[in-house]
Design a protein around this nucleic acid. Structure first.
Lengths: 159, 159
DNA sequence: ATATAATGTATCGTGTACGATTTAAATAAG
DNA sequence: CTTATTTAAATCGTACACGATACATTATAT
């Protein structure tokens, strides 16, 4: 009747190179490596740098807001913040409104470093980030992907 | 003569959301989170899973080959391999040809788990990886990006 | 007004990810 | 043949990244 052998035929895995996830995983590692060298003179890592980027856009956020903007949990963010405080880029102040929350603000050094760092990054970034082939459409698709992924993560949460 | 104030005009940083690197960074974190839950039943993490993927494609690689295929340094790979050995997915054997190198091979459990894991991943992956919008062109551009990034990383090396 | 639930931080344990250093084996150079 | 260089692994220190837990403060419910 049934060909049982065919029914239990082994499912083969997709090759690594064919997987979107693996390509993105590699790209992140490579980007981090590039930024490591570029940010070395400022004694910053990439995650520390994006905290500064967020604050240059919008100073005096509370940790929760930073956490949402960067899509990083507080367990990840806290040690990064501590290091930036130690390096005198930012300060932590308890919020007057809500004693639970902590406001993160740029120091003078943190504010002033924006132009220095951005200038040095922008000379490299023309090589890194803005090749003609990585146009707006590509970025848009990545953003769509991120929206989908976060929906999926939220969806898995509720199961 | 010159308007010096204009000459020292502050360079502003690019916004986070406009940066390709940040989009990719977020996507990796989200993918890892999704895979964390999917692979939990098998007691595997995403990096451990891609080691298995590599070996399912090509068993009995030495660590150096694995390192190249996955673009991971030996400092990263070694603890991952140790865990897979402890969980009885793979074994380490010194190479007979070259006593420096170590051959990584799948155990029976490691080999047999391919179909089980791939089947469960493939049911989820239709949701994750193969949306119509993430077509071959998108993947191709990501691969181009990775090629460029690795060239840049090699280039920085020599400076 | 008080018990309860929700929220914002902090901390801890596990697992990457990397560069730097060390060690042993293979290869090259003299 | 022996010294020098290269190569493959292993190890160490630093820095994320996450989930789980703990804790204080605020908001909610009765």
């Amino acid at each position: 009747m049934y060909d049982l052998n065919k029914e239990v035929a082994k499912v083969k895995a997709q090759t690594l190179e064919s997987q979107l996830c693996f390509a993105i995983y590699k790209a992140t590692n490579q980007y981090t490596k590039l930024y490591r060298k570029a940010l070395e003179p400022f004694d910053l890592t990439y995650p520390q740098y994006i905290v500064l980027l967020a604050l240059w856009e919008n100073d005096h956020m509370i940790i929760k807001q930073l956490s949402e903007k960067l899509s990083l949990g507080i367990g990840t963010l806290n040690p990064i913040i501590s290091k930036l405080v130690k390096k005198d880029y930012i300060t932590k102040t308890p919020s007057p409104m809500d004693k639970r929350s902590v406001v993160i603000s740029l120091t003078t050094k943190g504010r002033n470093s924006e132009s220095t760092i951005s200038e040095m990054i922008s000379t490299k970034a023309t090589k890194w980030d803005s090749f003609a082939i990585f146009d707006d459409q590509f970025k848009l698709k990545l953003q769509e992907l991120n929206t989908l992924l976060s929906q999926l993560n939220d969806g898995e949460e509720k199961k």
